[in-house]
Structure formats: structure tokens, C-alpha cells
Design a protein around this nucleic acid. Structure first.
Lengths: 159, 159
DNA sequence: TTGTACTTGATACAAAGTATCATAAGGACA
DNA sequence: TGTCCTTATGATACTTTGTATCAAGTACAA
């Protein structure tokens, strides 16, 4: 049986918001209502959302949300490294490895839309090495791998 | 001095068009005017073009070109594997390794816009392995690495 | 509580991509 | 050569995605 604590376990939302608070404090940036709201929506969606899907969700709570404010907020959260953009699907997803800077890879299932965020040493080393070989000082690394996930292959003929 | 030949050396355009002709014949697809034109423009640009940049170029020769026709043609050429889309810059570029199916990586210089298309075994193997580890049967592989190329780093402090 | 730099809301706009359908153009065949 | 059929094109309208600008509002420090 797990040991009892005085602090009760934080919800995923509370944990993520604390992380955001810390990052803002560290960097002297403000934690505003729309920033909290976007984070909460991305968290509860548990899947990538397009900017306009997000806008629709936000408007259901605050009719003043606009495309411009959504994109601004997403840019802010991406700069903090707690949201990623999936280029191949033009959508935005909460980072699953929010501690420190890192190079991640996304695996996207074309059947069910599931997205897995990986942090694979081998891939990171291989791309870094490729950059060196070709004389590039790399600072951004987009790796989006699309296919069919295990459970979707299981339910139908694998192709 | 280079050896004389009876066949005069084909221009890059001629070679690329022959490649396109062959592919169309193999697959029973038609080689039409707009398809040749898009290929020629991408070739002479020697850099990635957005769909609307391409449209402007095409309109200078045929005023009837439209966005729809440009996208249709690009989709066709991408299906043949002789054009790639760069997701991170929403642009299209001629394939530099047009022989057979392959997984490529792009290195993009954020200073000068230069794009290098690589076909790196190590990166391909690492991503394939990652897919296997996570149970994905991968069929698409987007790798776009952004940084500063060698000559741009040489001309200024590297950062 | 007040000041102020930063952020937001509102509006308008630009860029990127798609749907639909009638017309046109290749190619097979008589 | 002309007919038929298939596929691609041209034309139009539209949707989705992303930005620029600027006045008004607000989080945070002092």
C-alpha cells in the first residue's frame, strides 16, 4: 500500500499549471488567464488540436477569444517548450516531456490519430551527426513519423 | 579536355523531363502541359517555392493557371516522388534523388534558405527502429532539420 | 495602490489549400 | 477519321490557417 502523504496527489492539470507557473517565474513572464485556459484545453483534449478547434473550445467559455489570441498564446507556450506544433497535421499538442530542452520525435497513427511523443537518443544522435557531416549547426529538429499503430494493425489487416 | 560524344549532353531540364516521361509511361499516366511547366519552374528556381510563388511564375506564361491546378499538379508530382513538400516552410522542391522510393532528410539554413536533401542510412535506420519499438508500421517519414549552414556561419559569428 | 510594461481584444487582412463541375484533350478502337 | 471513354484541366467559389495593427486592459513590482 502506498505511503500516506500530507500533500494530496495533484491532478494532471494542477501539475501542468504549476510547471507553467514555475517557468513563467523563472523567466519573468506573466501567467495570464488565456494562457491557463489554452493549457487546460490542450490537456483535457488529450490529442492534438488545430488552432481553430482550440478557438472553438475557448469561445465556449470566453466569447472574446480570437484566432490572433490563440496563436499568440500557442507561440508563447511553444517558446516555453510545453506545447509542440505538429507540422504535418497543422496542430498543437501538449509536451509529454516538459522538463528541460530536448529533441523529440512524433509518431502519428493515420488510422486513429493517436500521437506518441518519443525522445530517442539514437535518432537525435543520427540527425545531429548528419548535420555535422553537412556542416550545419542545427537548432531545430522536426521528426514526424506517420504509420499505423499497433492496436489499429491488430484490428484489421496490417497495411 | 572532355571526350567528344555524338549525343550532346542533356540539360538538367531535359534529363528531368525524360525522367518524368519514363515515370508516366511506366504508370500509364499522362504527361501534360501544366505538369511539364511546373517541373520546369521548380527546376529553374533551384530552391523551394511556395505554391503561390509557383503560381505567379506559371501565370507569367499561361494566364489560366490557378491555385487549384498548381496544387493538383504538385500532388501528382509528389505521388511520383519527384517533388517533395517541406512541411516546416510550406514549400515545394524538386527531388534530388529521384531514383526509386527512399526516405530523405532535409537540412534547411535559416539564414540563406539553402536546402540540402540527404539520404542518410543512419537516420533512416534509427527512425525505423523507433517505429518498431513503439509498434508503428511507418509509411511516411518527415525529417526537417533547421540550422545555419557552413558558409553562413563562416561569414558571421556562429550562433 | 499605483504605475507601467506587457498582454489582450477587436478588426481586418493575407496566405495556404480544397470542392465542384462543366469543358477539353489523350488514347483505344472501329 | 471519327466515336467513345477516361482522365485532366479551367473556372469559380470557398474553407482553413495564420498575421498585422492598435487602442484598451491587466499582472506584477514597488
Amino acid at each position: 500500500m502506498p505511503k500516506a502523504h500530507n500533500v494530496r496527489p495533484a491532478s494532471a492539470l494542477e501539475r501542468t499549471l504549476h510547471r507553467l507557473e514555475d517557468l513563467c517565474r523563472e523567466r519573468g513572464q506573466r501567467l495570464t488567464r488565456p494562457r491557463r485556459a489554452v493549457l487546460a484545453k490542450l490537456l483535457s483534449a488529450r490529442r492534438p488540436l488545430s488552432a481553430y478547434e482550440l478557438l472553438d473550445l475557448l469561445r465556449s467559455e470566453d466569447g472574446r477569444s480570437t484566432a490572433a489570441s490563440v496563436y499568440r498564446t500557442l507561440d508563447f507556450l511553444m517558446a516555453l517548450g510545453i506545447v509542440h506544433r505538429l507540422e504535418s497535421t497543422r496542430s498543437f499538442v501538449l509536451c509529454e516531456h516538459p522538463d528541460g530542452p530536448h529533441w523529440v520525435q512524433f509518431l502519428i497513427c493515420r488510422r486513429c490519430g493517436q500521437v506518441v511523443e518519443a525522445e530517442d537518443e539514437r535518432v537525435a544522435a543520427a540527425t545531429e551527426r548528419l548535420g555535422q557531416r553537412l556542416g550545419f549547426a542545427l537548432d531545430q529538429h522536426i521528426v514526424e513519423l506517420t504509420g499505423v499503430c499497433e492496436s489499429c494493425r491488430g484490428s484489421r489487416a496490417p497495411h
